[in-house]
Design a protein around this nucleic acid. Structure first.
Lengths: 349, 349
DNA sequence: ATGTTTTTTGCAAACGCTTGCAAAACATCG
DNA sequence: CGATGTTTTGCAAGCGTTTGCAAAAAACAT
């Protein structure tokens, strides 16, 4: 008794299912399922018939049903605070590439710094929605991370410098990059080098700060408290605090900002103060987000291989999905000094 | 016979289900379902018991199962080309806000300009994964859009200037914005105003081009072919073509770029050519992406209310989900001239 | 108490798909 | 031609929920 769809009214039409395809091609629905999943023991002629019917009917698999029945979703989840910082977009590009290759889909969730949601999301995503989870979350997410680990759910943290022994992590050489940035300025002859910090709670910020201090110390330059400008990895605070700083103290000859966004803030403050970049103050950033090469002057910075980080993270995750017993790993990718136009040799006044 | 989970080995543990909760609280699973869904006819004491059990067991609903059984997913899908242009991030912020309010989740799919995938994705998302679809796709997606429409699946296009009679669309006043930008330059005394086009195929690009031409014409300024610089909404091409243009012709006194990214490319070319902004050439963009206010000089531009566009799109979509019979609507939001530092009064040489 | 309502609860049937198992169909061989 | 082995197929049982329907409890009238 074929349901005669005559309920008129613009009601949502029933989708075509595997059963419709089965009926149309005269086989059982399990055979259809096998064909659709590329199963081997199917007669070629049957396969053709089914494929044709599916095509003709415009069959599209119902993903939820699939993941319910099959226990896997061919989807991986990505949890990020937000998409508006130019930095995560790059990582996602890498993630996309690698995932496409493995034929997985990506589901992106933004938490927009609502801490509570983060945990709820993670748990939901880990429960049937996806086969693995990529986390780009600023603060250490111990609470729910432990829970996921307990269930042995595949997870990879990106850019989390915390020593999470139990999870796979992909990050970059923060200390080293910062050290190199600072040394570069020193080599240019600078001595009075200010530092704009990142958000205190973040491991990466701490490491960059250390790199700065160590480079100074190693070159016998004292670390001056007055030269430490409080930042939070966002532009507005860097602007504001650099402005205050310039009003209060004699200007440094160079500034190292813990990330590019902060560097932009500083640049604005410097200009408003009537100083030139790099003639009066050299400035170097960290991250190399796309904007770094479009600001003027183009920002000299330490590149984090963001796209590659995304790619590597996916590889780790996929490994873990395929082999749940695999030990968590940490992969730290090398940063690189990108010299552009925002720094110059120090010239004594 | 409670399954005694002693299979050792780090195998994926079974998640706690509604049935476990039912057992733990001594009621049937349908009652649990009712409690969890805030159903009314449940005795208060029972509700408490169930809630406690769920809490204790750490129950998290299985989304796929839910959407299979219930026929809706409380998720809406968003199809975008990519996340690396600063423009979509803004829209998503608006989307997020409005969706959170309605208690929906967002699933973001990136197509990265692989045309084929776009259609497949759209169909998959529309089939069980989400209750509605938001499309930010550059080219007109007639093929699959028709299919979705036929099934009466809720869709809203963002920033699609095509006259898709049958779908809801949210966009901005492209013509008007462009007209205003051009008029602004004219009012500053400029006559020789170049225009960097957007990608030809896009409706928005065409409209902006018209706005530019109409403004010139209305002010008795001839539209010169040589002043039209081919662009594609991306920085590199704008840079390259502006460079060529400057080598070939005498410089204009102002440039209007069809979007901010192109303006950035032009700025770079102008500087490389040894010209100053805005002293030698004024420049104005379109979009007002976040970078517009961090470049130097800060870019005067036409703001598209991106965040608001995201919000409105969600509202339209939600309306459509709740009431499938609703007619598609087009909402066009007003653009706005944002005056910053990249334009100045024309001074005769 | 008993009959009526009304509120709560449980049962069972979906939702669309995957997959183990067994039956059917086809080949092969002595 | 029957026996044996292989390749194909179909059946049925789930996967974790929601939800219509009917039964059980509780509340209220009489």
């Amino acid at each position: 008794m074929p349901e005669n769809g005559h309920d008129s009214h613009k009601t949502k039409l029933r989708n075509v299912t595997i059963i419709d395809v089965a009926r149309a091609s005269g086989v059982s629905y399990s055979t259809v399922s096998r064909v659709l999943n590329g199963f081997e023991f199917v007669k070629e002629s049957t396969r053709q018939r089914v494929l044709e019917a599916a095509e003709k009917l415009g069959y599209v698999a119902n993903a939820p049903a699939r993941s319910l029945a099959g226990g896997k979703s061919q989807t991986i989840g990505l949890l990020v605070p937000g998409l508006d910082n130019g930095y995560i977009g790059e990582i996602i590009r890498g993630v996309d590439v690698e995932l496409a290759r493995a034929n997985y889909d990506l589901m992106i969730y933004t938490t927009h710094r609502s801490r509570g949601k983060e945990s709820l999301y993670a748990n939901t995503i880990a429960n049937g929605v996806s086969d693995g989870l990529l986390l780009i979350v600023p603060l250490v997410p111990t609470n729910y991370l432990d829970a996921l680990r307990e269930r042995n759910f595949p997870c990879v943290l990106i850019d989390q410098s915390v020593t999470a022994e139990q999870s796979s992590v992909v990050d970059a050489t923060n200390w080293q990059g910062a050290y190199e940035a600072t040394r570069y300025l020193i080599e240019l002859g600078h001595r009075r080098i200010a530092f704009i910090t990142g958000l205190r709670e973040l491991g990466s910020a701490a490491q960059r700060f250390e790199g700065y201090k160590d480079a100074l110390t190693d070159n016998n330059i004292p670390v001056l408290d007055e030269l430490i400008i409080e930042g939070d990895y966002w532009q507005p605070l860097a602007y504001e605090n650099t402005r205050k700083f310039l009003n209060e103290y004699s200007p440094p000859t160079a500034i190292f900002a813990a990330n590019d966004l902060s560097a932009f803030g500083a640049m604005e403050a410097i200009r408003n103060h009537g100083l030139r970049i790099p003639e009066d103050i050299s400035i170097i950033g960290f991250d190399d987000i796309p904007q770094a090469s479009i600001v003027y002057p183009k920002l000299t910075t330490i590149r984090q291989p963001l796209e590659q980080m995304g790619r590597v993270a996916v590889k780790l995750l996929l490994e873990q999905i395929e082999n749940p017993d695999r030990q968590p790993r940490r992969v730290t990718l090398a940063t690189q000094l990108i010299v552009r136009d925002s720094c110059q040799q120090y010239v004594a006044p």
